[in-house]
Nucleic acid binder design. Structure first.
Lengths: 340, 340
DNA sequence: CTGTTAGCGCATTCAT
DNA sequence: ATGAATGCGCTAACAG
């Protein structure tokens, strides 16, 4: 009965010659326990290699110290980085993270949210603001806090830590317009069920429209975030007429593919064609020329989402709807548009 | 008492006019329940929006359907990809993944493993074979299965799904040697507490030694997996004399930085200097020239580790120690060494 | 400051 | 095929 499967709290109590309740108090950092007893308990627990049973704890206390996150994929570095920061911050406070990837499928997201609720997640991180209504309804009914990331619009019940994708799209357009470009194109991510990609595209087109450039005249390609899709999309755009002199890509990955195509096709970047990316991934410095891009604060979003989750319900009121700045990182892939 | 916080199993039983035991049977797919009753239960559960309490279930049944993974960091795409595959496979079977990043710190890894055991993880995925003895001892004592990845050496109690890093290092050396290079260098990852990085380095040096090249004459730089470290390490290597004509990098990230330095310094790749990477990340095609590299089967490791975890204890015996092949992907960054 | 009592929600005996 | 009873391991009241 010593080196069996595992000692329980009551075994610790016996060895420390006190009641289970006292052991529980020590374990939970309750300060109203005498030094001497506390030390005996700690020693007994160590001796028995006692590991608390989280399920029992959770059942009794209704606190699981479990948080969930549902992201589209870990294959995109921007999400991986956000999760990395989220996890690090949560771990500091002894909170564990259950991770799910939805592969951009909001129906699958619903299933995963349900499982998270079952597991007792006390809060859930979601990406974007576009979700099945029943997903949010369930979270709300079960009193599970949720935070949107990559967006700055919260709901009544949820918070948001992110940025305004529409504004970001407009910023890209404005920058290119200011450089004198008048023939623009875009390689967006896949916009279906994806408010971030849609927001960026719409913002981009809207700003162009304000400058008198009809959206219908702006070629927009769509592709999953793969270098190869950036390449093939760029090829398409360059075949449209009149040919764009500047292209906004919904991700640095796409932009890298786009530049790759230009190199192959003998198009000079930025002389013949300006390319601006999105994310500011580490790889933005690998292309030649290096990528001008809009920086997404992935790590900050992860950390701040964690802060929101870790905050008390009271503090949370002050943390809802946190809009982070998007900054333009100018490198070599953009240049002046030629006068028409 | 209807749209309160949440219905419990007993509420479902009442509405379905049966006993809690029967509801439990239906929920767990026990086939010994009459069609009619089963359907009533299912309807009642749906109507009440019943969500089972995982903690209670786990406490009672000692099955949590929770699995843990401790990886060094999500900032390295190779781990992110592995976790992505792992999670996808586990999710198919309704198993949730608790993710922790150890930042390459095996003491922190121990703490995280302990927390995973507390949470009731039924299995844990670990990276590499180098861990604190107490980490594995704890897992074994608590009967938590574990799988090593990125290595092919299992322990008595644990499994391994991965490849032989030493062999991979030797393969890189052999390839460069066969190209005729005699002055070699290496940019390794950080080898402290890291058997993968060490294995690659040692294998590389050993193969060179076999070819009569003294390890002491081979400059080896170390750096975390950042482009900038690849750049600065390459600068150092190029300053050593005699200058290497071929460099093996412990990651494509380092290799990309190394190429970056060469471009800046006016060194032609592969004419003046051959560079071989490791991982075959998506970015391997972004450098100019594209990277010759050894491909790490990240996605396969995640999927196969999941298969191991999901297998029954019996089946597991057949799945221990799975060595996956490492393949060389030849692109443009390597070329023949000049005759001395 | 510490012990006693009770029960969290469910799955599992054991009956029937 | 179904129901009644029991207790998983722990923490929260409440005493003392």
């Amino acid at each position: 009965m010593d080196n069996e499967e595992g000692a329980k709290l009551i075994d610790v109590a016996k060895l420390a010659e006190c009641s289970p309740a006292t052991v529980s108090r020590v374990l939970n950092g309750n300060p109203t326990v005498n030094r001497g007893v506390r030390e005996r308990v700690i020693r007994a627990a160590a001796e028995l290699r006692y590991v608390p049973n989280g399920s029992a704890r959770a059942l009794r206390s209704t606190r699981t110290r479990l948080v969930g996150a549902i992201i589209p994929t870990l294959d995109h570095a921007i999400y991986a980085t956000m999760v990395d920061a989220l996890q690090a911050r949560l771990a500091e406070k002894g909170v564990s993270l259950i991770l799910n990837t939805s592969t951009y499928d909001i129906d699958l997201e619903y299933e995963q949210a349900k499982l998270l609720v079952e597991r007792g997640a006390e809060a859930v991180l979601l990406v974007g603001a576009e979700h099945r209504p029943q997903t949010l309804a369930m979270l709300e009914q079960k009193r599970v806090a949720y935070v949107f990331t990559y967006t700055s619009t919260a709901t009544d019940a949820g918070a948001a830590v992110g940025f305004d994708n529409e504004k970001a799209g407009r910023a890209a357009a404005r920058y290119l317009l200011d450089l004198g470009h008048t023939r623009l194109g875009m390689i967006a991510g896949i916009t279906q069920d994806n408010d971030r990609a849609k927001g960026r595209r719409d913002g981009f087109l809207r700003e162009l429209a304000k400058a008198g450039i009809d959206a219908a005249s702006v070629p927009v390609a769509e592709g999953a975030y793969k270098i190869e899709n950036g390449r093939s999309s760029m090829k398409m755009l360059m075949a449209s007429s009149p040919r764009p002199t500047a292209v906004f890509c919904g991700s640095d990955i796409l932009a890298a593919g786009a530049i790759k195509y230009c190199v192959e096709a003998g198009l000079a970047v930025p002389k013949d064609i300006s390319i601006i990316g999105f994310d500011n991934l580490e790889i933005a410095v690998l292309t030649a020329p290096e990528l001008t891009t809009l920086e997404v604060p992935a790590r900050d979003m992860g950390r701040l989402a964690a802060d929101y989750i870790l905050a008390s319900p009271l503090q949370r009121r002050h943390l809802r709807e946190r809009e982070l700045p998007i900054s333009l990182v100018v490198r070599g892939s953009t240049g002046p548009g030629r006068a028409n």
